[in-house]
């Protein structure tokens, strides 16, 4: 019997020691954080260019005038994101399954999937957007098929599906072989074993990793501005020229963070939950 058991109001020696440690580290963290913030607040304005930077990046008048317009433009980012994400998921899943196909008759699919992931993971996103976004409409397609929305989105879909496919494939590889043994031993076909036993578990395992890709996609939608769509980044550029101020870019950054930080936190939360389950 320890003291703590006899008298619950009285913590044991270990608990007292740990409480003291916790108080101490809280205090140290608080002081060091305040010092750093104080230093930034005092030192940055001392920099020789601070007045100029403040005027062009943090101009409240420009900010309040342009912010609503930026929000409007951001709706287009969300729209592009919303139609790309499901298509990426479908194409990524398809490519992942193709890469593991065993049937000789379907070998071309497997070859396609391998080349596909190699190519699109090996190219900078912006390069694919230029090639697809300018190249295909350059074929002289009639309206609406020359729209940069379509081909820019396609470029994003192609690149991200390659990453999603690799993530899903690693998920499939992480499922222990005894699971497919059990399914096959019951007389299930290879396809049913994949669909009902392996994939559901694999997809659940890679959900956090795919969430990170979702966050990255949300940001990369801004790259489409290079081939035409007036989304938030492009709109910020327009305002920059109009007001001769970089403040709209800061506004755009704030809007992106408002979306991506909660998404990143959520992905981390899923990742931690996953890790706990595995223990």
């Amino acid at each position: 019997m320890t003291k703590a058991d006899e008298n619950p109001a009285m913590p044991g020696r270990r608990a007292q020691y740990e409480a003291a440690l916790r108080r101490r580290s809280l205090w140290v963290a608080g002081v060091s954080t305040s010092l750093v913030f104080l230093a930034i607040l005092v030192l940055v304005p001392l920099a020789p260019g601070w007045e100029a930077v403040k005027k062009s990046f943090f101009n409240w008048g420009v900010f309040s005038k342009t912010f609503p317009g930026l929000l409007d433009a951001f709706l287009l980012d969300i729209a592009i994101f919303s139609w790309c994400a499901p298509l990426i998921a479908l194409l990524g899943l398809f490519v992942a399954i193709c890469r593991d196909i065993q049937k000789p008759a379907l070998y071309p699919l497997r070859l396609f999937a391998t080349v596909y992931t190699d190519v699109f993971r090996g190219l900078p996103v912006i390069l694919v957007i230029y090639l697809v976004g300018f190249g295909i409409p350059g074929l002289g397609l009639p309206r609406p098929w020359n729209s940069p929305y379509i081909w820019g989105s396609l470029a994003l879909i192609l690149v991200y599906a390659a990453y999603v496919a690799e993530v899903i494939r690693s998920g499939i590889g992480s499922i222990h072989k005894s699971q497919s043994s059990a399914a096959l031993s019951l007389g299930l076909s290879n396809a049913d074993t994949m669909r009902y036993v392996i994939l559901p578990q694999a997809l659940r395992n890679v959900l956090p990793a795919n969430m990170n890709l979702v966050v990255a996609l949300q940001k990369d939608v801004a790259l489409l501005s290079f081939v035409g769509p007036v989304e938030i980044f492009r709109q910020a550029g327009v305002y920059k020229s109009l007001y001769a101020s970089f403040t709209p870019y800061v506004g755009a950054a704030i809007i992106f963070l408002a979306i991506t930080i909660p998404m990143t936190r959520f992905a981390d939360h899923l990742m931690n939950k996953r890790r706990k389950q595995e223990q």
Binding site: A182, L186, L188, D192
Partner: peptide, 27 residues
């Protein structure tokens, strides 16, 4: 020819009943 394994190998994402009914359902 049924086979039962040392390590059970139940499908962890399905309830006991679903584990049992999957093969008769699909096959």
């Amino acid at each position: 020819i049924g086979l039962v394994f040392q390590s059970f190998n139940l499908f962890p994402h399905m309830s006991a009943a679903e584990n049992v009914m999957l093969a008769p359902r699909r096959v």
